[in-house]
């Protein structure tokens, strides 16, 4: 069930603020460009509402922080894991594909999950069709599904969603 839509005004203000902070960083805080940046940020935020309408999912700051911590630590594991396999003379990989049924709702949560999984250890998103996600695994012998479910829980927390395992249990 998608949550109640967020007011467009809140979405525009939020997106405009993020864009303006990005502008401020890109111009290194140059004061002569701030006014121009503010106007451009506001315009882009309004236009973005037509291209990507407000999804109704709002980002929870606490969930986002926890997710970033999880993401950073797993990124290190992912990089070291592939490097270890590559430097080992036997090249211990056994590539394969698995298809999973996702518990996350459609839209931003699924999109964030698919993109995150491409950077997580041993998985690469190939195809996202409805609630079916096909992954390429570096080593099919690993406990891939357990890792994916954990990532799914972390992504759910960003949007304040409690991820139930109903889809998993229904299979």
């Amino acid at each position: 069930m998608p949550p109640a839509p967020v007011s467009p005004l809140i979405t525009v203000v939020f997106r405009g603020t993020v864009l303006f902070v990005a502008w401020w960083a890109l111009t290194l805080g140059e004061s002569s460009g701030l006014a121009f940046g503010a106007v451009v940020s506001a315009l882009v935020a309004v236009v973005s509402l037509r291209l990507f309408p407000a999804s109704g999912f709002s980002v929870r700051p606490a969930g986002l922080m926890l997710f970033l911590g999880y993401f950073l630590s797993r990124s290190v594991v992912a990089g070291v894991d592939v490097a270890r396999r590559l430097l080992s003379p036997a090249l211990p990989v056994q590539p394969g594909e698995i298809t999973l049924t996702l518990n996350l709702p459609e839209g931003s949560p699924r999109w964030l999950l698919a993109n995150t999984l491409s950077l997580m250890p041993g998985t690469l998103s190939i195809l996202l069709e409805g609630n079916r996600l096909t992954l390429h695994c570096l080593d099919i012998r690993d406990r891939v599904e357990r890792d994916v479910r954990e990532t799914e829980r972390q992504v759910g927390r960003v949007f304040g969603l409690a991820v139930d395992d109903s889809a998993e249990a229904a299979r």
Partner: peptide, 23 residues
């Protein structure tokens, strides 16, 4: 190195995304 040691496209992408991200 992953580009040379791995033999198919999908496995090579694993090396390029994850290891370069960390680098």
């Amino acid at each position: 190195l992953g580009l040379f040691r791995f033999s198919d496209t999908l496995t090579r992408i694993h090396a390029l995304t994850k290891v370069d991200n960390l680098g």
